[in-house]
Design a binder for these strands. Structure first.
Length: 210
DNA sequence: ATTATGCAAATGGTGTAGAG
DNA sequence: CTCTACACCATTTGCATAAT
């Protein structure tokens, strides 16, 4: 009923690599690693207390932080300390404190792409697949297609685009677009956001000049 | 006729926000 | 403090098209 009913915003505004949300909380925690309270974090990060509480709980379960004054039971009065600093960006944890698997496949493909010179989506799927993650050919195909559209990949051999010849489109990673370790995310709005650059790198081409 | 690619839409999973 | 609802990204699957 609050006038400021904040619905969830775009990924580039709250997810990893952006601002707001858990990222701010994590930064605030790092700034006060010796000891902090939920209220401090909430105020410093300018994040709703409930959100802070949720994330802190996840961090605690994940073993990233530890409560100092165990005697206190009230969450708002609890004092935590950072015991496991990833140093990087905010760990993506589920409420259970377990690492999020979402995006793992994406990252695997992104990493493979930067290592291998050229490839087709079949090879990418095979190379990206590990014992931990299995990349479906279809997924690789989709991701590859989007990246190519965004200019991250160069189509070096269109070959025989279709048919039973076994010559799929061959792509090559564009070094100029090697922006960083974070894989670009394909947003729901048909746009592609690069967490490394912190900006939209491609949109659905509003340009329709005839 | 068979097989693979390309495109598109549907579904699932996760995080955030709010209310009880 | 716990629970429910909602929004968004990621992934999977199906259909249409085209060549061997």
């Amino acid at each position: 009923m609050a006038a400021t009913k904040q619905k969830r915003r775009g990924a580039h505004l709250e997810m990893v690599g952006g601002k707001g949300g858990r990222q701010r909380v994590w930064e605030a925690i790092r700034a006060n690693r010796d000891g902090f309270y939920l209220a401090d974090i909430s105020r410093a990060a300018k994040v709703d207390l409930a959100t802070v509480r949720t994330y802190v709980q996840a961090l605690e379960r994940g073993g990233f932080i530890q409560q100092c004054n165990v005697t206190v039971k009230l969450a708002e009065a609890k004092q935590f300390a950072l015991v496991k600093d990833n140093g990087l960006e905010a760990p993506r944890l589920t409420a259970e404190g377990k690492p999020v698997i979402q995006g793992l496949i994406n990252e695997a493909m992104w990493r493979t792409m930067r290592m291998v010179r050229d490839f087709n989506f079949h090879e990418l799927a095979a190379l990206s697949s590990t014992t931990e993650v299995s990349v479906a050919p279809g997924t690789a195909r989709t991701y590859l297609r989007h990246l190519a559209t965004a200019g991250y990949l160069i189509e070096i051999d269109k070959g025989h685009g279709k048919g039973a010849g076994g010559i799929p489109t061959r792509y090559r990673f564009n070094p100029a677009r090697n922006s960083g370790p974070r894989p670009p995310m394909i947003q729901r709005t048909k746009s592609i956001y690069d967490p490394n650059l912190g900006q939209i790198v491609w949109q659905e081409e509003p340009d329709h000049d005839c």
